[in-house]
Design a protein around this nucleic acid. Sequence first.
DNA 1: CAGACTTATCTTGATATCAAGACAACTTCC
DNA 2: GGAAGTTGTCTTGATATCAAGATAAGTCTG
Lengths: 170, 170
Amino acid sequence: MNTERQPDAVDAILAQWRRERPDLDASPMGTIGRLTRCSALMQRRLDEAFSAFGLSIWEFDMLATLRRTGAPYCLAPTALFSTLMVTSGTMTHRMQRLEASGWVERLVNPEDARSKLVKLTPAGLELIDRAVEAHVQNEHRILAPLNPTDLTALEMSLARLLAVLEPGGE
Amino acid sequence: MNTERQPDAVDAILAQWRRERPDLDASPMGTIGRLTRCSALMQRRLDEAFSAFGLSIWEFDMLATLRRTGAPYCLAPTALFSTLMVTSGTMTHRMQRLEASGWVERLVNPEDARSKLVKLTPAGLELIDRAVEAHVQNEHRILAPLNPTDLTALEMSLARLLAVLEPGGE
DNA sequence: CAGACTTATCTTGATATCAAGACAACTTCC
DNA sequence: GGAAGTTGTCTTGATATCAAGATAAGTCTG
């Protein structure tokens, strides 16, 4: 495998730390710095596709989570905020916004009166079905510059890292 | 290289999409989903180290950026918000907070009266020098479960992805 | 079945962020 | 040197987020 590459912004940061704090082994800053930066830049690229549908990232995530559970596209708030890694208070706010936009509705939960279920409306279903197509196309476009070998290596490396980071991941 | 692994949360999401939308090739969702999730989980792990010093992530990032530029630990606001990928308004707010905490001070810029330079105070320097040590140790600890081969592969994959995503990256 | 505990959600108050616009200080170009 | 354009920062107003606490509904035990 070819290991040559052009220096990037993170290399410059590492060089600064080597000069200022030669006592530290800052190598993990390179890995983690690139992870953070890749993720931030990726979110911006993804947002470009969502905004064409008038959706922000969190709106897309909410609707997509409901969509992929399958008919009747309905979940309890706890399932949503656990999956999406936000607090219950944030979820309350999000549900109110999406309900006001007409993309979800709240239903009485016959099995637990503490919950009100969240369900995609027909308009929400139609919207997310179109948006997810554009989203997947956009993702293909973003990753297109990577050749299949590099893409597979990236996939595998991230899976390994995720296994290390995932709560309960051993 | 061993390519076997246990299914993770992202695999489950991909399986849902295959069932619901078999017409879509959702494979990039796996890569990008893991990237996003790794980054989010990583931020939480990093935050644990910062909070021991009473610092939030953005406070650490600000002080560390000033620290690694070397003496006199002084930058113009534009250099800071460009590096840290936030808006100028956010930077104004951050500088006010750090100044109130006594970790930075604002100086007249002799070369450009539109700027007031931001500089680490002695207290800020002392704090970030301690915090960055703990931070680097923490990063080593987080990545320790990865063997050297996997770590190198991750590093290389992220560098390639960053080159693709970085504005002006070709 | 009643009290004690647990769980699911919502409320409240504080913050951090951005977008857009205001404004003053620089720079360019006649 | 001065008008016109550019740049660097701050202000304003709207949002999204979290932590911590409140509240109501479910569950468990004796």
